[in-house]
């Protein structure tokens, strides 16, 4: 009989995450009528009234790419990253942090359970102005995100109270979290592609109005990107 071993740190959390991952895989295969993710990017919605972008906001991205149409993707606006650009970090799709760069917020709202600092990226102001304000980061969440970003950049490890709420290290090359990482990173590839596409940043309310005109201003159907 094998001797009892203490589970390594993070084992319980990793087991919980793997359970969610496995459930997600089964549920994806069970979709009765969810439309397949679109291959081509669609347009951003028109900017919303009173939608000034500020650091500390939580915003829900519009369903303008396959990733953002497949689930509501909430992002935390962290800091300006240049003219018309903001550094943002997405919230994850699971309730359990998968990686050392993910932080369990302990919020009741399912879509804001885990903040993914490791997947922070730069979003254009046009996209964020078209997103929906959905709340604000707490001071603790801002501090935690800052600490995780600093650690990822080679700085000091996060303080113990932050590290306690993060996921376990990713060591094994065949760990299913590698697949998860690639899926989550696709968010930024799609956002980049949408912004670069001809007409990609054109407000879709404007296009919808144009399509209703007898002589569409944007030419034949489908040319609007």
């Amino acid at each position: 009989m094998k001797p009892e071993r203490d589970p390594p740190p993070g084992a319980r959390r990793l087991a919980a995450w793997l359970d969610e991952w496995h459930l997600e895989r089964r549920l994806q295969a069970a979709d009765p009528d969810a439309p397949p993710a679109r291959r081509a990017p669609i347009r951003y919605p028109a900017p919303r009234a009173g939608a000034a972008v500020r650091a500390g906001q939580i915003r829900l991205l519009p369903p303008a790419t396959p990733a953002t149409a497949a689930r509501p993707v909430y992002v935390a606006v962290l800091a300006p990253a240049g003219p018309e650009r903001w550094q943002v970090a997405p919230f994850g799709r699971f309730a359990t942090p998968a990686l050392p760069g993910e932080y369990a917020t302990r919020r009741r709202a399912l879509p804001l359970s885990v903040l993914c600092a490791w997947n922070a990226g730069v979003a254009g102001a046009a996209l964020l102005r078209a997103s929906y304000p959905a709340g604000r980061l707490t001071a603790a969440e801002r501090r935690a995100c800052g600490a995780l970003l600093a650690a990822a950049g080679g700085g000091a490890p996060p303080p113990a109270d932050v590290a306690r709420r993060t996921g376990p290290p990713l060591v094994h090359p065949l760990d299913p979290r590698h697949a998860y990482v690639e899926e989550e990173r696709a968010l930024w590839l799609e956002i980049g592609a949408a912004a670069a596409a001809p007409g990609g940043a054109r407000p879709f309310d404007e296009l919808r109005l144009a399509a209703e005109e007898p002589e569409g201003r944007y030419g034949k159907k489908g040319s609007g990107g």
């Binding site: 519009p62 369903p63 509501p72 709202a109 879509p111 804001l112 959905a134 709340g135």
Partner: peptide
């Protein structure tokens, strides 16, 4: 489970 706050922005998922 999807509401993120008590005010209207907390129901942003409906606009999505």
């Amino acid at each position: 489970r999807l509401v993120t706050g008590r005010s209207r922005p907390g129901k942003a998922y409906k606009r999505w």
